[in-house]
Amino acid sequence: MGYEETGMTRIQKEETSVLSRFVNEVYFKLSSSSMLQKDDNFGWIPLYYAAHSGNRELVELFLNHDNSLAYKKNEKGKSTLHISAIKGHVDVVRTLIDKRPDICELKDDRDRTALHVAVESREEEVMKFLLESIAFQDLINEKDNEGNTALHTASSGGDFKILQILANDSYIDRGATNKGGMTFAEIILSTNLLNDTEIVSIHA
């Protein structure tokens, strides 16, 4: 057993070393050739790919080289924060906000914040992190281009656990209405996605 553990530890160390060398090589090639700001045929820069894959180390290296990258948006108006939130990479989200707290204010082409897209993607850990983040505190009730807050978005999705976390957060405005004049409670009742017990629990 001890031999197996030692062998596994050695393999893990070797894998970590290989990954670290790869990250440094990628960073060196990109930064030395001024390609960090250049997007590809899909409108993506290297930072987006690093965030999408959850490579926190590479994200940090890119931002240390040029922190303005955090403010760039792709063709759909999504920033690196949106991309990492959608994929559920909470470590990347944390790194981005630690580096540039004001990127929390960035919205996509539908005026959605990182919280909106995390809720829509049902990424619970990212959602909870954003709710607890001081940098995001004043943005929790931001509305998209249809007047929906993150709570409205959750109500349309019908995920009970996500809804419960949001509805019980002290900063959430449960009475907010969207452009259709609907509150989150009215959306819940109109979708029929929750059972009666869940609805009562949410409204409690």
Rank of each mutant, 00 (worst) to 15 (best):
E4M: 15
M8C: 12
T9N: 12
I11G: 07
I11Y: 05
K13T: 07
E14N: 01
E15H: 12
T16K: 04
S17R: 02
S17I: 04
V18P: 03
V18Q: 03
L19R: 09
L19Y: 09
N24H: 12
Y27K: 07
Y27T: 13
K29I: 15
S32P: 06
S33N: 09
S34Q: 08
M35H: 09
M35S: 14
Q37A: 11
I45D: 00
L47F: 12
Y48W: 08
Y48T: 07
Y49S: 14
A51W: 02
H52L: 14
S53T: 11
N55M: 15
N55D: 15
L58C: 06
E60G: 15
L61M: 10
F62M: 07
F62P: 08
F62R: 01
L63N: 02
N64H: 08
N67D: 15
L69E: 03
A70G: 07
K73S: 13
E75Q: 07
E75N: 12
K76D: 15
S79L: 05
S79D: 04
T80M: 07
L81H: 02
I83W: 00
I83F: 00
S84W: 00
S84L: 04
K87D: 10
G88Y: 04
G88T: 04
H89K: 06
D91A: 09
V92D: 01
T95K: 12
I97F: 01
K99Q: 03
R100E: 05
D102T: 13
I103R: 00
C104N: 00
C104M: 04
L106F: 03
L106W: 01
K107R: 08
D108Q: 08
D108R: 05
D109E: 06
D109F: 14
R110I: 13
D111E: 11
D111L: 14
D111N: 13
A114S: 11
V117I: 08
A118Q: 06
E120D: 15
S121G: 05
R122M: 11
E123Q: 07
E125S: 09
F129I: 04
L130T: 00
S133R: 00
I134R: 00
I134P: 03
A135Q: 07
D138L: 14
D138R: 11
L139S: 05
N141V: 09
N141M: 05
E142W: 05
K143N: 13
D144G: 14
D144K: 05
E146N: 09
E146R: 07
G147I: 03
G147T: 03
N148I: 04
T149A: 12
T149G: 11
T153C: 06
S155A: 15
G157I: 10
F160M: 03
K161P: 10
I162Q: 00
I162L: 04
L163C: 12
L163V: 09
Q164I: 02
I165L: 12
A167N: 02
A167H: 00
N168Y: 14
Y171W: 02
Y171Q: 08
D173R: 07
G175V: 12
T177L: 08
T177E: 10
N178G: 13
K179G: 09
G180I: 06
G181M: 05
G181K: 01
M182A: 06
T183S: 11
F184E: 03
A185C: 13
S190M: 09
L193A: 04
T197M: 09
E198F: 05
I199T: 03
V200Y: 02
H203R: 03
H203D: 01
A204T: 11
A204F: 07
